[in-house]
Amino acid sequence: MADVSPRIIPDRLQGRSSRLLKSWESLLLVVAVLIFTINSFASPYFLDPWNLSDATFNFTEKAMIAFAMALVIIAGEIDLSVASIIALSSTAMGLAMQAGFDTPTLVAVGLATGLACGAINGALITGLGLPSIVVTIGTMSLFRGLSFIILGDQAFTNYPASFAWFGQGYVWWVFSFEFALFIAFAVIYGVLLHWTNFGRAVYAIGNNPTASLFSGVRVGRVKFILFLLTGLMAGIASICLTSRLGSTRPSIALGWELEVVTMVVLGGVNILGGSGTIPGVVLAALIMGMVTFGFGLLNVPGIVMSIFIGVLLISVIALPILWKRARRRMAH
């Protein structure tokens, strides 16, 4: 009781700019610029606007899902079924197409299937309280399995010409519809996570679900919505991908869940939940897209590229840990 007047605690100590400089996102930005520079020196074709525009198709669909996945992982859960939702949505659209429905209906079917799959995941995880990693491994099998039952070794082709626009159309000059969608969702998810009560609840749940519940956060409802969102985003990605490929096979988007999770983790989202940002995921998407494209220009096969992604995934987590240890050792 020494000082009578209550002490005023400053809002922030570090300026925003100094914190920004030290962030994971700025490191990603440096890496992105570096890769951009290397690519432009390595291949004369890289800087061509149309080539760059083509390159965006490498990541836009995955990135859309990654935004929703980032929220799920920040909230301490995971959704491994996203690629299978793409397959099932695509298959549902194929069935609708065969039944003679028009393009708007196909889109509606794609979105509805994605939402329905998300609702199933959400209900199993929040309703029955099952671990999301096992549930979504199960639905991953189930959703793609349904596509296999419907299609077997067949494929849906002959989508209407107007349907092709979603994956192949351009909004303005070299900017594709998909890229515009990518930008729009980056903004929407950035605002949702960083500027709304819902986003705050996501962080709170990821850091401490019990205390969040005690604090009046409707934990179950928030998690359910998150799985609904990943389902919806997978549905949207499915529309784009199906339209771009012009066909549906049950093996469509096989293995994408791993790439999406890698994108999210590379973007600085803690796999154990609680922290991460949308700008980070955007940068990670750009980096992964440019690396894929750069390797493509150099005729490096996709699978070698996947080694790079795997090494990247482990090292982005391992390096900060090793760095911290080395510093501690220096201090002693």
């Binding site: 809002d11 009560n197 850091n207 604090s215």
Partner: peptide
């Protein structure tokens, strides 16, 4: 009680967010 990992001010406002926010925006 505490949500370790979140800053002090976000801990304090978590149950009162409906009052500090406007139509869902922080």
């Amino acid at each position: 009680g505490a949500i370790i990992g979140l800053p002090i001010f976000q801990n304090v406002t978590l149950p009162s967010l409906t009052r500090t926010s406007r139509s869902g925006f922080l």
